[in-house]
Amino acid sequence: MTPSRTRSPASRAAQRWSPLLAGLRGRPFWAQFGGSVAALIVLSAGFQLISGSFLTLGNLRSVVEAAAVPAIIAAGISFVVIMGAIDLSVEGVMATASMVAALLVANGVNTNHLGVLGILLALAVSLAFGLANGILNALMRMPSLIVTLGMWFIGLGTAAVLFPQRVPQIRDDLLLGVARHGLLGFSLVVYVALVFVASAQAVLSHTTFGRMVYAIGGDEALLASSGLRTRGIKIAAFCVSSLFAGVGGLLLSAQLGSGNANIGNGHLFPAISASVLGGTLLTGGRGGAVQSALGALILEVLNNGLIQIGAGPYTRNIISGAVILTAFAASGVHRRQLLRVVK
């Protein structure tokens, strides 16, 4: 069972996967992001033709503002998705993070004003959700789908228990300032998103942890049978996902100016779509944080554009579903001849 270890497991994994990773990193920009960028251009041009007001500076700004938080969540969840697992708990984590932060910083319902400490505690709680997800999945060997589904309910329930009967208005200048202050026409939320997405990508492509995340997604059985320890990596990946969801919850709370137990509503499936969208359009289908963020941007362009062209509220669901399906189908056309297993 225990193979002899001459080198550290991580370095061997790196060696095993290095050709592939080199390929990924070495690939030119267009091969990695071409699909996503093309989709963005096609959609934007289409909306501009129909509405005539899509490609204005003001509207593009509002698309970017709206995409900032979904991009963070999608970048976080891609750590889990790249491993081939899934994290359904993000909405619950966002709800709890929002409630915890709103009740610990200066607010309208109690006398707390922990400031930065309150924000950090809310992030710590988010991290705890990720830790629990990871432990249950990696150590107790329960499928991530069900583990994170359970944690979704627990997160929503925790937020409901914390809810103080009256919407807690946030009065903390630091937290509110992130949404209220801006730079070069964008609010600080956008810059926070850039920092998180960039660091997520840096971690994925330049650290052992990141390489192991890809390796687990590649062939975990092979990895396991060669004696590499994957449990710590898996737990860490779930922690990243939850932490990013927590950050997303805090930023949304800052934008709203209040804590909200439903703040995560409707963020899970777009985040997963974004991370798969970004990953699949990239020929080769491996994905990354930047690709996921681009996926989130595509979905936001779709959302915004459909409002701009005046699509009826019911037909919006139909069109956005159809566009997502078409985008995937278009990106996969050339692969149909290959003998591939698709789950």
Binding site: G58, S62, L252, L256, S258, N262, N265, G266, N303, N304
Partner: peptide, 17 residues
């Protein structure tokens, strides 16, 4: 929902100015 309304209003502000 608060957040959905926020997204919608943001788009309107950009569109209609």
């Amino acid at each position: 929902q608060e957040t959905k309304a926020q997204d919608i209003a943001r788009t309107w502000v950009a569109h209609y100015g």
